[in-house]
Simulated assay, not measured.
Amino acid sequence: MSKKRSFHHESLQKPDQISCILNALVEGFEQGTIKLDDGSGKIKLKPEGLLNLDLLASKEAGVNRLSIKISWRDQNCKHEPADKSSLKIYGG
């Protein structure tokens, strides 16, 4: 049985700083390794196979929220992806 390890980071960032973080994540997905380190904790992830994408966006009383959750299994599972409608994201 594998030991559970986790990493959590929360901070205030400007939009261009968030863009740099997201670009680093994109590079990690493309290269197959994502390393997270903020000085108080670190973790190394290796995305492979089919990944589950969960997006949630909301606006309420002047508070905007965008949550992005991506998950996958380490072993190669032979599950077929759910047939979902095509996602469209526009920036700007």
Score class of each variant (00 low, 15 high):
residue 23 N to K: 11
residue 86 S to T: 12
residue 18 I to V: 14
residue 4 K to V: 10
residue 65 R to N: 10
residue 45 L to W: 02
residue 61 A to C: 05
residue 81 P to K: 06
residue 85 S to H: 03
residue 26 V to L: 12
residue 32 G to K: 01
residue 75 Q to H: 06
residue 15 P to T: 11
residue 74 D to E: 14
residue 67 S to Q: 10
residue 76 N to M: 01
residue 89 I to D: 14
residue 59 K to V: 10
residue 1 M to C: 13
residue 3 K to G: 10
residue 80 E to D: 05
residue 43 I to N: 02
residue 51 L to S: 09
residue 82 A to K: 14
residue 51 L to H: 04
residue 53 L to D: 12
residue 29 F to C: 07
residue 55 L to T: 06
residue 28 G to M: 11
residue 54 D to Y: 03
residue 82 A to P: 02
residue 36 L to Y: 06
residue 78 K to P: 02
residue 3 K to C: 07
residue 31 Q to T: 13
residue 82 A to T: 10
residue 24 A to R: 13
residue 3 K to V: 12
residue 12 L to H: 06
residue 91 G to I: 09
residue 79 H to Y: 10
residue 33 T to N: 09
residue 29 F to L: 11
residue 87 L to Y: 14
residue 28 G to K: 11
residue 85 S to T: 15
residue 67 S to T: 07
residue 74 D to C: 03
residue 60 E to V: 09
residue 60 E to L: 02
residue 34 I to E: 00
residue 43 I to K: 04
residue 9 H to F: 08
residue 46 K to R: 00
residue 53 L to S: 06
residue 55 L to M: 08
residue 74 D to P: 07
residue 38 D to N: 02
residue 64 N to H: 10
residue 73 R to Y: 02
residue 81 P to H: 04
residue 27 E to M: 03
residue 66 L to W: 06
residue 38 D to V: 00
residue 20 C to M: 11
residue 6 S to R: 12
residue 35 K to C: 03
residue 12 L to Y: 04
residue 82 A to Q: 15
residue 4 K to H: 13
residue 60 E to Q: 15
residue 81 P to A: 08
residue 29 F to V: 08
residue 4 K to S: 12
residue 16 D to Y: 09
residue 31 Q to F: 03
residue 44 K to A: 09
residue 72 W to S: 00
residue 14 K to V: 04
residue 80 E to N: 05
residue 19 S to N: 13
residue 41 G to A: 14
residue 46 K to C: 01
residue 85 S to V: 06
residue 6 S to K: 15
residue 90 Y to F: 04
residue 10 E to L: 11
residue 5 R to M: 11
residue 25 L to G: 08
residue 39 G to T: 07
residue 11 S to M: 01
residue 23 N to C: 03
residue 52 N to P: 04
residue 19 S to A: 13
residue 9 H to D: 07
residue 17 Q to M: 02
residue 79 H to K: 07
residue 69 K to V: 00
residue 75 Q to R: 05
residue 84 K to V: 15
residue 65 R to K: 14
residue 84 K to M: 15
residue 30 E to Q: 06
residue 85 S to A: 12
residue 11 S to W: 00
residue 83 D to N: 10
residue 35 K to F: 07
residue 29 F to N: 10
residue 66 L to A: 08
residue 54 D to E: 14
residue 45 L to A: 02
residue 48 E to V: 00
residue 5 R to F: 11
residue 53 L to T: 09
residue 62 G to C: 07
residue 88 K to N: 14
residue 64 N to Y: 06
residue 40 S to R: 08
residue 46 K to I: 02
residue 70 I to M: 10
residue 89 I to F: 05
residue 49 G to W: 00
residue 32 G to W: 03
residue 13 Q to A: 13
residue 71 S to K: 15
residue 83 D to I: 03
residue 90 Y to G: 08
residue 6 S to M: 09
residue 75 Q to N: 12
residue 5 R to D: 13
residue 3 K to A: 11
residue 11 S to G: 04
residue 87 L to A: 12
residue 46 K to E: 00
residue 89 I to E: 15
residue 80 E to Q: 01
residue 42 K to I: 02
residue 39 G to Y: 04
residue 6 S to L: 05
residue 86 S to N: 13
residue 56 L to I: 08
residue 10 E to H: 13
residue 74 D to W: 01
residue 57 A to F: 05
